[in-house]
Amino acid sequence: MRDATTASVLASVRRLEAVAFRAWPAEQAIYDGSWLIRLAKGHPSKRLNSLNPLDPGDRRDIAGRLARAAERFAAIGRPLTVRLTPLAPPELHAHLEGEGWERFDESIVMSADLAQAATDGIDQLPLRDTRRFVEARLAISGEPDSLCEALVSILDSIRPETGLFLLQSGERPTAVTLGVLDGGLIGLEQVAVAQDLRGQGLGTAVVQAALRWGQLHGARQGWLAVGADNAPACALYRKLGFAEVYRYAYYRERKRP
């Protein structure tokens, strides 16, 4: 019998994975058993272009299923990327390691009880202009303007209620985040602060604004994913009451010399 603690953790992972998929939807979602293939031809996001195993017991025909998934990725001009969470079968992890796949970009999924979290920021009404939000996000992050249409399409395809939060200094965007309300949870996506203004409380302000909005609309728990190597952001979220739930990382085949 599975350990009760492990079962409880896996239940939390399953719930957060489900809301995360809805919060950041791919153009295509294809199932091979419990392995979910997510594809987005218009945007290079790893989360939108990855193979996501969702059952630790689904370990049949690993090599064959990877090969078939690789064909789907190749059809849109992308290499196969596998995203491993605690829901992935250990045998798949062992297979990738044994075949010399490269592990990269670990992320931490964190959550917070909003009754205990620091959500005492000022009330702020979210934007209704998706394009304005996306343009601000790209300006802050330094990502190319060519991603604008794809990002607008992604945000417009999110089915749960969303809140777009933007801080500005004059006409200059300084911080943004996207809040997604889903089943008593609010997820934070696209958090960004202008690089030369970091450490001045803007990240705290924009995150608190989104959490406060979520709480006022019935959210009881917040969640987010942050790069494991992003120490300042991890420290900020912990200060606001977030704690680690689980981690995930990506795998890709190593380039041959």
Rank of each mutant, 00 (worst) to 15 (best):
L66K: 09
G64F: 05
L39C: 00
D61G: 05
P53H: 02
L39G: 02
I62G: 00
P44L: 10
P86V: 08
P90H: 02
R72M: 14
I76Y: 13
R47G: 02
R47T: 03
R65I: 01
D55N: 14
I62F: 08
P44Q: 08
D55C: 13
I76C: 11
A88F: 05
A88P: 06
D55V: 05
E97K: 09
I76E: 12
E99S: 09
L48G: 11
D58L: 12
A88L: 06
L96C: 07
L51Y: 04
P44R: 10
V82Y: 11
A75F: 04
A75T: 07
E91T: 03
E71T: 10
P53W: 00
G77A: 08
L48T: 06
R83Q: 15
A70C: 06
A88M: 05
E91V: 00
D58V: 07
P86A: 12
G77F: 13
A75R: 12
H43G: 01
K41A: 15
L48Y: 00
E91C: 10
N49M: 07
G42A: 14
K46R: 15
P56M: 06
R78Y: 14
L66R: 07
H95D: 01
R47I: 04
H43D: 06
R65F: 09
P86R: 07
D55S: 12
G57K: 08
P79S: 13
G77D: 13
R60K: 14
D58T: 09
G42L: 03
G100W: 01
L96M: 10
N52F: 00
R72N: 08
A40S: 15
H93V: 11
H43N: 15
T81C: 15
H95W: 15
P53V: 03
T85K: 08
N49P: 10
A67Y: 06
S45D: 14
G64Y: 04
A70T: 09
L84K: 02
P53R: 00
L87N: 11
P90C: 01
P86I: 09
H93I: 08
G77E: 12
N52Q: 07
P86K: 10
P79Y: 05
